[in-house]
């Protein structure tokens, strides 16, 4: 057993990374009601790219964030234009996007399997195995860098959404799509931007994932359900809810992991999801009508 404070430290550190991983899911759902089931598949793809960059080009995963971000941003805009724009105006739009992204996830999984086989991978930068000790507490060095990077990116995203014209337009579209149109927001363009940002967050999370957790192509299913669980807990489409949900569930999962063993830590998320659906289906920060 680890001490309570130690669990809290590790949990919050982990939660920061989970928040970054899930924020894009929340953003794309909030802005356009697209539930992107391929989000984690793109994240794992990002992890493979970061792994490659380290193995072949000796680029540190923390540096490959700068490659993955723009790369996945552009990929996101292209995918949005090709795949999601044609669905606009379709009745039962969310359902259609869900099936579409499900197909996309399977497609990427197969391609990753063909390229990199099903073997577990883990990028191994120099800091991955070291730990920092503060008195009676410790924190793995890699985890600390990943958390710092996540927080930095999340704060930058927050600043963008709060303080810039385009960021405000994204929030406006999330809150009231028609009203956004009325004040002259070109909502299709804003949607493409938001989808690109969501994908970019998947890409940069992949860089962090590459050295934090072992991964293989099929692993993205576990990730997507973990991330969706905390999005549902926070309230679908609420960005602040996603961050709070990530911190809460990460701490809970670290606790479960230390009490019952790491095997059961993913179960924390599933159990939390069922509990939320039972007690407060709209989540912590969600509005009634989901």
């Amino acid at each position: 057993m680890t001490s309570g404070l130690q669990i809290l430290i590790l949990g919050l550190a982990l939660g920061g990374v989970y928040a970054l991983m899930a924020i894009g899911l929340s953003l794309t759902y909030g802005v356009m009601r697209i539930l992107n089931l391929a989000h984690a598949a793109f994240m794992v793809l990002g992890a493979y790219l970061a792994y490659w960059a380290l193995q072949i080009l000796h680029i540190d995963p923390l540096v490959s964030i700068l490659i993955n971000g723009p790369l996945f941003f552009i990929l996101g805009i292209v995918l949005y234009r090709i795949l999601f724009v044609p669905l606009a105006g379709r009745s039962r739009y969310t359902e259609a996007t869900l099936l579409l992204s499900f197909g996309l996830a399977l497609g990427i999984e197969g391609i990753m399997g063909a390229m990199w086989t099903g073997i577990y991978r883990l990028a191994n930068p120099s800091y991955a195995t070291r730990s920092l000790v503060f008195g009676s507490f410790y924190i793995p060095e890699g985890q600390m860098y990943a958390t710092a990077a996540s927080l930095g990116i999340l704060i930058a995203l927050w600043g963008f959404l709060q303080k810039t014209r385009l960021g405000r337009a994204i929030r406006a579209t999330m809150q009231n799509r028609t009203a956004a149109q009325i004040v002259g927001v070109h909502v299709e363009r804003i949607s493409a931007l938001a989808f690109g940002l969501g994908m970019a967050s998947a890409g940069v999370s992949g860089s962090l994932l590459s050295f934090l957790f072992p991964f293989f192509p099929g692993k993205h299913w576990q990730w997507i359900s973990i991330l969706l669980s905390l999005v549902v807990l926070g309230g679908m489409g609420s960005l602040i809810g996603t961050v709070v949900g990530a911190l809460m569930l990460a701490v809970a999962s670290v606790y479960v992991s230390s009490a019952l063993g790491p095997t059961w830590s993913p179960a924390t998320f599933y159990a939390a999801l069922f509990l939320v659906l039972m007690i407060r289906p709209q989540g912590l920060f969600g509005k009634r009508e989901v």
Partner: peptide, 11 residues
Amino acid sequence: VPQDRSLFPDM
């Protein structure tokens, strides 16, 4: 200015 005012409620 539409019927429901169409403000952004959380802003």
